[in-house]
């Protein structure tokens, strides 16, 4: 059985026994990750479908309710998330070019941005709680009393909530990757793990790119 892990000076266990080469294995990992991302996309698709249907049924309520969200905070969060995506991309780039310290630094920046995102989101949520702009049966927002507004907030909380869960999941993945990076596991020879984590984080960003206009802008 040819085994390259040792020859490349990589840590044990990187190349599994049933793959003929590391290249093959990386390809498998990448494809597997993309398939997983596809499932994530379809997971969110359910909520987007709900959004599309109810927006079609209650166009005015959605516009009205959307105007009462804090667009400044929404935009701020968009910028925060885009930047964090950028820093993850940079981190992979640095790992690829054998600059592990820079890579780690980028991950730290990403994590900080992610925290900032959650912080801003928390502020927004607190505001909604304060105004009773809550989903479903808890809806008692004085400012918007159009039928369908409660549905907007249901979708708002489900979508941002699910997205928030993904942000938290992404943060834990990135923290783990940060630890591995600091251990010096990723280099130009092997950086697939980091790349996978990065892909996940980009997906979180991707979902937000759609949530932002749908919830805040129209």
């Amino acid at each position: 059985m040819s085994h390259e892990a040792d020859a490349l000076g990589l840590p044990r266990g990187i190349l599994a026994h049933h793959f003929s080469s590391l290249e093959r294995q990386n390809e498998a990992m990448r494809l597997g990750m993309w398939l997983f991302l596809a499932t994530e996309i379809l997971l969110f698709a359910g909520l987007f479908t709900g959004y599309a249907v109810y927006r079609f049924q209650f166009p005015l309520a959605f516009q009205e309710a959307s105007r009462h969200l804090n667009i400044t905070l929404g935009t701020l969060n968009t910028v925060v998330l885009i930047t964090s995506s950028f820093s993850v991309a940079l981190s992979i780039f640095y790992a690829r070019t054998d600059r592990p310290r820079a890579a780690a630094l980028c991950l730290v920046v990403t994590l900080l941005f992610a925290l900032a995102f959650l912080g801003v989101k928390a502020v927004e949520y607190a505001e909604h709680f304060h105004e009773h702009a809550l989903p479903g049966k808890y809806y008692a927002y004085e400012a918007v009393k159009v039928p369908g507004a409660a549905m907007f907030y249901t979708l708002y909380f489900l979508m941002t909530g699910l997205h928030g869960v993904h942000v938290v999941a992404g943060m834990s993945v990135l923290s783990w990757l940060l630890w591995r990076t600091l251990q010096g596991r990723y280099s130009s020879r092997y950086y697939t793990g980091l790349e996978m984590g990065g892909l996940y984080w980009h997906l979180v960003d991707l979902v937000w790119i759609f949530l932002y206009p749908l919830l805040y802008l129209i």
Binding site: G50, Y54, Q57, P135, G136, G148, M151, T154, F157
Partner: peptide
Amino acid sequence: AGFGMFDPARGGDPVL
């Protein structure tokens, strides 16, 4: 939690 996404009482659509 009573979010009411499919709840007809809140304009939800069971067909969805």
